[in-house]
Design a protein around this nucleic acid. Structure first.
Lengths: 110, 110
DNA sequence: GTTTTATTTTCTAATTATGGAAAATGAAAC
DNA sequence: GTTTCATTTTCCATAATTAGAAAATAAAAC
């Protein structure tokens, strides 16, 4: 599902520090909308709209639990992004060691 | 040089299919502004503005050759993007083989 | 069923982004 | 130095984005 329009919305969604902060919170564990609002320093209504944007980009999905709505990171979409980046980052070819180091540092070799 | 604001501008720059098309053209070889305009299906003035945006994001740099201005892909910035993607794509951990395959397919194992 | 909690929607106003056209710049050709 | 070519800048009109406030929904608690 990696078409032009989709990449538009994904990259656009990532082009905002507060939205990225929400995703960073989600990377750890699913969070309710209200929690994400605080993470990003936004009011409820603004957070809700930004979350809808992230959802439209496929970067997260929601599930209801009682009165709360939980957001979950959709890791699959990162594959599209990674694919696009890899495509244009030709320079990574033959430098997988370097990327491996990156991944190791960033993820703590887990 | 991977700060929040920089990522904002980089992702924003990537969030437009025509700008990505220009970058795709540049990945192959440096191109004059006029050539990029046609690649993206834009008039000169519009192309010039989008190129300025890509330049501000650090995705390309310019060099003058006679009356033409050539744009060159700046591969280094992709490292920032790749780093960010890798950071959030935890799921890639332990799946480097898969990524390797990706890179192989995409770059034709060169 | 009324209240409370969690979230979304609607509406408005302010800000920002966009392309096109035409004028302006900059360098080369003559 | 005047013309030509390549690109940028300015100006304008249009469209898109955003947050905030208040009203609306939706589900649970009482």
């Amino acid at each position: 599902m990696e078409n032009e329009t989709h990449l538009d919305t994904v990259f656009y969604a990532l082009a905002d520090a507060r939205r990225r902060r929400m995703l960073e919170a989600l990377a750890e564990s699913p969070k309710a909308v209200g929690d994400l609002a605080s993470s990003a320093g936004l009011r409820f209504s603004a957070a809700s709209k930004n979350i809808a944007l992230l959802e439209a980009a496929g970067l997260l999905y929601k599930s209801r639990q009682g009165r709360q709505i939980f957001c979950h990171m959709n890791f699959d979409v990162w594959k599209d992004v990674a694919g696009y980046v890899a495509m244009h980052a030709k320079f990574w070819s033959g430098r997988l060691n370097e990327l491996e180091k990156y991944l190791g540092e960033v993820n703590g070799n887990d």
